[in-house]
Design a protein around this nucleic acid. Structure first.
Lengths: 203, 203
DNA sequence: TTGACCGGATGACATTTGTCATGCTGAACC
DNA sequence: GGTTCAGCATGACAAATGTCATCCGGTCAA
């Protein structure tokens, strides 16, 4: 009885490579490939998938939200997150969302297949290089509003734009940005955005 | 006589997928795979490569600089640029650096092989979806110094930091940033950085 | 109950940033 | 030659940003 696998990744080439590599394994069967997060739950249900392999960064529904949705809709399907960059914060968030495993994309093919098998068995799989970093950086120090405002600032808009979008006074927005800057260690809002993003505190 | 191909891409999975897909073609032989741009010229010379397939965004030496270096050191080797995102500005810059072709990564495998063949024959290959955009956005409107200062600002430092790094007065730095904001259409320096980056005007 | 504490929210104030007018150099073009 | 224009460079000034003290409502422990 082979493992029924659903793969979602927005880069077609990577998706194809993953499907091809894992499809070669005798005990793994790729039953669906998706280019974004929106159809993941439907595909998992339709194909009675055992494992869903999801990219963190995807258009539509992001991988972490998709992971949570899959766990809710199909508890028997385990989730393995795959990502390009090892943003430490993502790991913890993914685990909290119900993911069983977390690996970076350039893991050797053999180990990827092994990760799929372990996840299928209900074991947890974490890329060792990420685990150490994750413990270092820990949880996001940002409060909900701080993260929200910082995210709204990430496309470079002015305080006026952000305050309108978030229904807050400009002073409040400045204060949140100030707090976010202090917590990230950045000296400007742009630096704070970059640092928070690198730590996976935004999504 | 098969086409001798060198592949350079920092994402191991993509690199492997490209090598595997193109290696299947009867008339293409992958003679070297690199994870960054620094060793490209040496690899091209050593293996007497006919075509070099380079990612634009790589650690070490970026793809466009690497393309120029290859053309200088081995004029008989044609360069095919491959990129994840279709930043319009990259296309023109790559062509000016001597590249013969430019395609996005999720082009179907069959077309990638065809692109390699065309480039090998000395023909030019441009992803059609990019060509239109490229003509729209045209050349970078930024002057050398403007781009330099904007790039220095891209990690979120203050004007004081930038002025020290660029050996300019703070007023001058502000002026360049102001000009860059006007030319990109951004209302803050952060937005200008983002827009310039999206257009491929920074590298 | 009280007090301590945290997250949310706000306005006043100093600092930084963005805009503008100006001067300078060198290349291109009558 | 002279003139025109683009890019480089700078400082003065107005506008936006970042900092700070403060207040409010809820939660948790003593």
């Amino acid at each position: 009885m082979s493992i029924r696998l659903v793969i979602a990744d927005d880069q077609a080439l990577v998706r194809g490579a993953l499907a091809a590599l894992l499809g070669l394994e005798a005990d793994i069967e790729v039953v669906a490939e998706l280019g974004d997060g929106t159809g993941v739950v439907a595909a998992v249900v339709e194909h009675a998938a055992d494992v869903a392999m999801l990219d963190v960064e995807m258009p539509g529904l992001d991988g972490i939200s998709a992971a949570a949705a899959v766990r809710r809709a199909a508890p028997s399907c385990h989730v393995l997150m795959v990502t390009t960059f090892g943003r430490p914060g993502y790991l913890r968030r993914a685990m909290q969302a119900g993911a069983s495993g977390f690996v970076v994309k350039d893991t050797p093919a053999r180990q990827l297949a092994e990760a799929v098998r372990r996840v299928h068995q209900g074991l947890r799989v974490v890329d060792p290089s990420l685990a150490a970093e994750s413990l270092m950086s820990g949880d996001s120090p940002l409060t909900e509003r701080e993260a929200e405002v910082l995210k709204a600032a990430s496309d470079g808009g002015t305080v006026a734009d952000i305050s309108k979008a978030a229904m807050l006074s400009e002073g409040t927005v400045r204060n949140y940005l100030s707090a976010a800057m202090a917590k990230t260690g950045g000296r400007t809002r742009a630096e704070a955005v970059r640092l928070a993003h690198e730590n996976g505190w935004l999504l």
